[in-house]
Nucleic acid binder design. Structure first.
Lengths: 186, 186
DNA sequence: TCGTTATTGAAACAGTCGTACCATATACTC
DNA sequence: GAGTATATGGTACGACTGTTTCAATAACGA
């Protein structure tokens, strides 16, 4: 008895908050501007999430969930040469539409380096992708549980993403990926 | 006439402030704790640097200067195979002693993604290294002004650094670099 | 000693931050 | 209607932020 709880509100707020963080970044996040943009109040944010830290944790989990879904949706092209698959992944992840996600990705990593205690899973977001990518590049792996190849592939992708986001030089980074694809194939 | 200026004080403070930022990170930097650790006052920091933003800019310039010097000191091994040179660079940059510098590196990059206006040079710190590294890997380059090879090499190094700092898995990242060295040599 | 310039301390200002407190409103069962 | 649990608004607290203001001190040349 009493007024029924409305769990949908928290979910709706979480979705909007994730949009906001993807758009504005994590570093300067503040409850009052966030609440204003979401047409709610700091009071309600704390009511639903308990504290800012828990809100941020929920937002990051949601962002990672979204990223995983989008990646899974896109990955399918298992046919084709190694180059084609690599270029396909690069084209997708480096597209402008993914920029907010990539930005948050780097921001979280940097924050984790300064405050490791906040992220008890020690880079789970990194190794997460290995299962998916390991399957995609199985034919250039040395074995079914080869972790080195996906590590290298992801390093190239992240390293070039780093370069691209810092310099904006798409031509040079695209060509560097092509070069890597060549090397992998021989 | 009048009391003579003491430019050495600013330099001394800058050096100490750089140490402090390398140790504590850039994100949560605050004048009062910084001043306390440096045995000075916020008043003097602003007196010497004008504003916090200018102080940070000076610290970042100093940090980059230090990094460039250390890199130049280390690079010499131009002899030896491509693998040896690559592994030498990786061993040096991924060593624990470089961790504070690497951390600041990632932190600045992330901050630059959120506040591009603060960094008008659009990733000059990135392309900086190309001249040096381009010379080091000239024999695997396609030409004297080949930018693709150094781009790829640095991408692998940064990408693996990202992985290593996030997961702490040195064995896997070391082996991934070896694999890349193999690929590069064939 | 006096004038001048550099340096420094203490305090305050105006703002933002996360959060807690208190009241009130809303929606339901009985 | 009463009773009850959820959902809000408003407000204020205490701690922080970068920066400014005002006054005092220190080191020099004359």
């Amino acid at each position: 008895m009493g007024r029924p709880a409305d769990p949908a509100r928290r979910e709706r707020t979480l979705a909007q908050a994730t949009d906001y963080v993807l758009a504005h970044g994590l570093a300067g996040l503040s409850l009052r501007p966030l609440a204003a943009a979401l047409d709610t109040s700091p009071r309600m944010l704390l009511y639903d999430f308990g504290s800012k830290q828990e809100l941020v944790a929920a937002v990051l989990a949601e962002a990672r969930r979204r990223g995983a879904v989008r990646l899974a949706e896109h990955l399918p092209p298992k046919t084709g040469s190694v180059q084609e698959r690599l270029q396909s992944i690069w084209a997708w992840i480096s597209a402008d539409e993914r920029a907010p996600f990539v930005r948050l990705f780097f921001e979280v990593h940097a924050d984790g380096l300064v405050h490791p205690e906040t992220y008890p899973d020690r880079g789970e977001a990194i190794t997460d992708w290995f299962d998916t990518l390991g399957a995609t590049f199985r034919d250039v792996s040395t074995g079914p549980d080869d972790t080195v190849t996906p590590t290298l592939v992801m390093a190239v992708v992240r390293g070039l993403l780093f370069d691209l986001t810092a310099t904006g030089d798409r031509h040079r980074t695209d060509r560097a990926l092509d070069r890597f694809a060549e090397l992998l194939n021989r």
